[in-house]
Structures are given as C-alpha cells and as structure tokens.
Simulated scan of single mutants.
Amino acid sequence: MIRLDDLTVFVLAADNGSLSAAARLLNIAPAVASAAIKRLEAELGVRLFARSTRSLRLTSDGARYVEFARNALSELRAGQDALMHERDALRGALTLSIPSDLGRSVLAGWLDEFMAQHPALTVSVRIGDTPVDMFRQPVDAAVRYGVPDDSTLVASPMAPDNRRVLCASPAYFARHGKPATPEELHEHNCLRYALSETMHDRWSFAKENDERVVKVSGNRVSDDGELVRRWALAGHGLAYKSHLDVLADLRAGRLETALDDWTGESAPVNLISTHRLAATPVLSRLRDFLQTSTAAYLDAR
C-alpha cells in the first residue's frame, strides 16, 4: 500500500529537484527520504526519478505521476481541513508567500493575530517579491500585487483600490524641494525597484484626462521593496511605493507624499490561491481575516 509520507517526499523532491531539499523541508534524514522514494517506486513498479551524482530529474513516468500525487495530497489536506472546520478549530499546516515590504511592516503582525486565534495551526511564511509557481512549489496561498493572468488561480481582493504614491522623507524634501510636475522627477534622485531583470523605472501618473509616464533615474536600485522603503526613510531619494506599504510611515510623518494632485498607478492587493484550495476552511478563514484587517487598517486614523 502506498504511504502518504512517501508521496509527500516524492512531491517535495520533484518540486525542489533534490532529495536532500525534500529531507530538509520535512526535517528527516536524506537516507529516510531516499528510502521513501525507493519504496514508492517498488510499489508502483516504475522509476520515478533519473538520478546522477549531480542531478535528480523526473522520468516520463514520474512526470505523469507527480500531478496525481500532488492532487491526492491536496485532496487529503482539504478533507482534513473540512473535518477540523466542523469542530470549529483550524489545525494543520499553512504555507504562505508574502511580499517583502508589506509582509514585514504589516502582514507579519496580522499573522500573529491570526495564529493567536487558531493556536493549533502551523504557519510557514516565505517572504520575498519573486512570484511563486502555485502548482510546482509547496505554497498554499500568496499575497501579491495585481491580478494573475492564469485563470486557474483565484484572486481574493484585500485592497482592490490600492495605488502607488510618490513619497520621500521630510529631510529629503527640505533639501531638494517637492516636484510640482511628473517631469520634474528628472531633477530628483529616484529609488528604483528591479525584479527578475525588469527595471521598474517608468513611473506613471494621471490627472483627469492627462496621463504621464516618466522614465526615472537614480543612484540606488534594489530587488527588495523593503530596502527601497528604508532608503526613502533615510532621506536618500524619492520612492514610488504602494500606499499600503507606506501608510504607517505617512501617518507617523516619517514620509510625505508629493504630486498629490496626480494619481499613481493601480496596485491592487490580492490573496492568490489555486481553485482546488480556495474553498478550504483554513484559506477561507484567512481570506476573511485579511480582508477585515485590511479594511480596518485603511479606515484607522
């Protein structure tokens, strides 16, 4: 009979391209992980992986079987969540991917509250701005800006009206003044954000029927939104940030906005999940909690 633990090792090894990585994620010895794969291959009568001293890749049989294994684990987890929900207690494990800036400044505290409400729940957080593959990586949900193009994903809105704002520290504006038009950004040091080889250096603004896109420049670039925010707080230049990311800084006076009569580009915040996981009790409860927390945070004075 196929063991659930063996399926788990198989899926994690396939997703991470390494038995040792799967072993680390499960906190087991590499030899135990290897034995699980051998046991599963013997049960199925096929080779699931082609192994060498340097690589591990799925065979054609393994590539066909991994989707069945992944779906089976998801269905079993959904069934377990459903049973827990009937007892009005969330249990099990949740893996969540969150962006660097919003994750550290806001979401981390909210997750503390959510776990305090559900102490039997184990949460694993992956923090970073690089998009995750919801089908190939062991992630249940992700908080991300924008709506995914993939129709197999579900986007539950947290802050649908969120936009980007131009901001800097009071000290920076005291030294350099505030730009009066988007074109004056050429005279300022702009703190740029780059991700996956894409430089986000075209900042857009709109006012009535007037739309402007300005290609900005500056002496600092990062692939970490939190670092860009810290540079802005330290007075190193202008940042074009999600309003939700810098809301606490704006309220405290650590940052100030500019070009207030112009509207920045849309940056809706969503909780992203796959269709088969979207309705699980854990994710449903998390979605409701995040939507309520976001609304309260935006309404606070």
Rank of each mutant, 00 (worst) to 15 (best):
L244D: 09
D149Q: 14
A72N: 04
A13S: 14
L244V: 14
S151I: 07
E211H: 11
N209F: 00
A69S: 12
E211N: 12
L44M: 14
A50V: 05
F114Y: 11
R220K: 12
T59M: 07
L191Y: 03
E75V: 00
A159K: 04
V11E: 11
Y172P: 07
R220G: 00
T95A: 12
F135M: 13
I2R: 08
A168M: 09
R57F: 01
R285N: 10
R51T: 14
K241A: 01
L250P: 13
A35C: 03
A36D: 14
T280Q: 05
S18T: 09
V228I: 15
C190L: 04
K38F: 08
L247A: 11
V11S: 09
V125M: 06
L76R: 04
R212N: 04
S74D: 09
A194S: 12
A248V: 01
A72F: 06
H118V: 01
S284D: 09
E41S: 08
T8Y: 06
R51Y: 04
L286C: 11
T8V: 09
H188A: 05
R39A: 11
V228H: 02
M158A: 11
T59Q: 10
S55W: 00
A180T: 09
N16I: 01
R163I: 14
Y65F: 15
S34F: 01
F114A: 00
R64P: 00
A180H: 06
D129T: 03
W203L: 02
E41V: 10
T130P: 00
R276H: 12
D112N: 10
R276T: 07
S74G: 08
Y172D: 12
C190W: 02
S284F: 02
D133C: 13
Y193I: 01
F135R: 15
L25I: 12
V66D: 07
E183Q: 14
A296M: 09
R144G: 03
S97N: 13
Y172C: 10
S20P: 03
D15L: 04
P99I: 15
T263D: 13
R54G: 07
V123Q: 11
H236Y: 15
S242D: 08
A116V: 03
E67N: 10
T59F: 08
D260Y: 00
D129E: 05
E41R: 13
L290T: 07
M134F: 13
A89S: 08
V216H: 07
D149E: 15
K38E: 13
P157D: 11
A33I: 06
D224A: 03
T198D: 10
S20H: 06
P157H: 10
R104T: 12
V132H: 08
V216T: 05
S284Y: 03
F289Y: 15
L73V: 02
P281L: 00
A194V: 06
F289H: 13
S293G: 02
L40D: 12
N270V: 02
A267V: 06
L283P: 15
A206I: 02
L121T: 04
L83S: 06
T122D: 13
G264D: 07
H176F: 11
H188T: 10
A63N: 13
G62F: 09
R136D: 13
A295K: 15
F49E: 08
R3P: 01
L290D: 07
A89I: 06
A234T: 06
A248K: 05
R301W: 03
H188I: 08
T274L: 02
Y193N: 03
D260H: 01
